[in-house]
């Protein structure tokens, strides 16, 4: 089934076979369909594999500098408060080069929905180590596996952001294993923005078969390892009745 807000001319999309973005964007598309917000949505894309979604949707799309999607969307929200701003960022863009943008946006409680796609490495440039690379994971820059003694533990994005947020923030972590939960979480995060309450961050644990060099079965085995380290669930919910 194809979401109604997809641009059919641009299918098949530009992602690799088995890419997690396919599932994430499909769920996002169904959420946009369900909430009927395609006409007012603005999708901001970061540098990285995220930008391959530039022609996938029939919604307004901006592509920004690396790690600067969140401040651009915050600016857009100031200029057009009725727009629904979605920032689609990779783990490198959100937790490495653009971490200050993410932290300040959370601190200001900007009414944005930030979707961070965590696939444990820099995928577009050929699979280099990212802050989110798991301990012992083999990437092109850690051929013997990541040594956490030297490079620190894998970065927990949502847990880092939560102390800066106020009671209106919605922070969750989901995995692409279950697209239905993914859709529900996107819906809650977008609704939090639509109600004008504040910042919402969804980290999605994604897969990268091209750089992990795995087939379908082993891909999901590795995703299980990621799920064991990164705790899934709604980490912070906005307080009811406020």
């Amino acid at each position: 089934m194809i979401p109604k807000c997809y641009k059919k001319e641009s299918l098949p999309h530009l992602f690799c076979p088995g890419c997690g973005y396919g599932v994430i964007l499909k769920s996002l598309g169904f959420t946009i369909d369900q909430l009927k917000i395609a006409h007012q949505t603005v999708l901001g894309l970061d540098i990285g594999c995220a930008l391959l979604a530039w022609n996938l949707f029939n919604v307004d799309t901006i592509q920004t500098h690396h790690g600067r999607t969140i401040p651009v969307m915050a600016g857009l929200k100031l200029a057009k408060p009725k727009a629904i701003a979605l920032a689609l960022v990779g783990d490198g863009g959100a937790y490495a080069i653009g971490l200050q943008s993410l932290l300040h946006s959370a601190h200001r409680n900007d009414p944005l929905t930030v979707i961070v796609v965590n696939n444990s490495l820099y995928a577009m440039t050929g699979g280099q180590m990212a802050p989110t690379t798991l301990e012992g994971e083999i990437t092109t820059t850690t051929p013997l596996g990541r040594d956490c003694q030297k490079t620190g533990l894998p970065f927990l994005g949502p847990e880092t952001v939560i102390p800066l947020t106020n009671q209106f923030a919605y922070v969750a972590r989901v995995s692409i294993r279950n697209p239905i939960v993914l859709e529900e979480t996107f819906k809650k995060a977008i609704l939090n923005q639509m109600k004008g309450k504040g910042f919402s961050l969804v980290e999605v644990l994604s897969v990268c078969p091209t750089n992990w060099k795995t087939d379908a079965e082993k891909t999901f085995q590795f995703l299980q390892e990621m799920e064991n380290y990164y705790r899934l669930g709604e980490i912070k919910k906005p307080k009811e009745g406020e």
Partner: peptide
């Protein structure tokens, strides 16, 4: 023309009803 043969559907099918074609190839 959309199928890129990633094999995710094959590994997730509960009744093993899916398999790779021996004759037809997709977009890639």
């Amino acid at each position: 023309r959309y199928c890129k043969s990633c094999g995710i559907c094959i590994s997730r099918c509960p009744t093993k009803a899916l398999h790779f074609s021996k004759t037809l190839t997709g977009i890639y």
